[in-house]
């Protein structure tokens, strides 16, 4: 593979006690593309995400993020909030983690925390109501409004996030991540629990985000979504990469099918050949 990579994961290993969740994994995510990370349950996908987004410190290996201006950041050297703040990597969670008691709008305002903190002069300018702060606040509200409009939640801007339907919460979480203005957006099963219509809308949203220049790394079980929108797919099983390539290559890869069917390789090939 060649090309412009926003993220290079290099020999990543993560151990929990004796369990090796991720074993010597290497892959790249291309800039302004959608890379999907797929694999059966327990393959270690979410662990990879947690390493990339700083929630786990990898046992060994390196993860390099290259910004548009050519700046390189070694993600394994940053921890928790700095990944989002400095490296501009945003994420969503498998089980939605909105702020349920805050409104949809407030959720999007919290996401702009670091920008707003600077604008409020670390609170002091904001406390006295300085004009520069008011302008910045207005701008933040506008940005949040734009996103609410885009995900079709403008009418529910002032409703508590916890009161929104499940599908809306998923989209709101993506919008919240986008409000941090990330270079790389990591989505952990964004289509989980969505109906067909909602997944179609999700695909559309993700494609439009890509079109605007944000790279996406995606964990997903819903193959229709993955096959439809991914530019590149990495398949994991038992913590190692078993395949990678374009969607159509992955679809036909016997090793991938074997991993998903849980059968051994020979058998899976036999199944496939007899099937065609």
């Amino acid at each position: 593979m060649s090309g412009d990579h926003i993220l290079s994961v290099d020999h990543l290993t993560m151990r929990f006690g004796g369990v090796v969740a991720v074993n010597d994994l290497s892959f790249e995510a291309e800039r302004r593309k959608i890379t999907a990370l797929i694999g059966p349950n327990g393959a270690g996908k979410t662990t990879v995400f947690n390493c990339i987004t700083g929630f786990y410190k990898p046992t060994s290996g390196a993860m390099r993020l290259t910004h548009d201006d050519g700046r390189n950041i070694q993600l394994e050297r940053l921890n928790d909030f700095r990944i989002s703040k400095q490296a501009k990597v945003a994420r969503t969670f498998q089980n939605i983690r909105l702020f349920p008691g805050m409104t949809a709008l407030e959720n999007l305002m919290v996401a702009q925390h670091n920008t707003l903190m600077r604008a409020s002069g670390l609170t002091f300018l904001g406390l006295i109501g300085a004009p520069s702060w008011r302008v910045a606040e207005k701008r933040a509200i506008d940005q949040a409004t734009r996103w609410l409009e885009r995900i079709g939640l403008l009418a529910r801007a002032d409703d508590a996030a916890g009161n929104l339907p499940y599908g809306d919460q998923r989209r709101l979480e993506i919008a919240r991540a986008m409000c941090t203005e990330p270079a790389l957006l990591c989505l952990d099963e964004p289509a989980a629990g969505l109906n067909t219509r909602e997944s179609a809308a999700l695909s559309e949203l993700l494609l439009s985000i890509r079109a605007e220049g944000t790279s996406i790394l995606l964990i997903e079980h819903d193959m229709s979504v993955v096959m439809e929108i991914s530019d590149h797919i990495v398949v994991m099983d038992y913590g190692v990469r078993i395949a990678e390539g374009a969607p159509q290559d992955i679809r036909d890869d016997p090793k991938v099918i074997a991993a998903y069917l849980g059968a051994d390789e020979q058998e899976a090939i036999a199944v496939m050949e007899s099937g065609t």
């Binding site: 700083g54 929630f55 909030f81 989002s84 703040k85 983690r97 909105l98 702020f99 805050m102 941090t180």
Partner: peptide, 16 residues
């Protein structure tokens, strides 16, 4: 307030 609601989500949004 966000911290009271969900600390992990706060960290993911770059809040120290």
């Amino acid at each position: 307030e966000a911290l009271r609601e969900d600390e992990v989500a706060c960290r993911a949004l770059g809040i120290n």
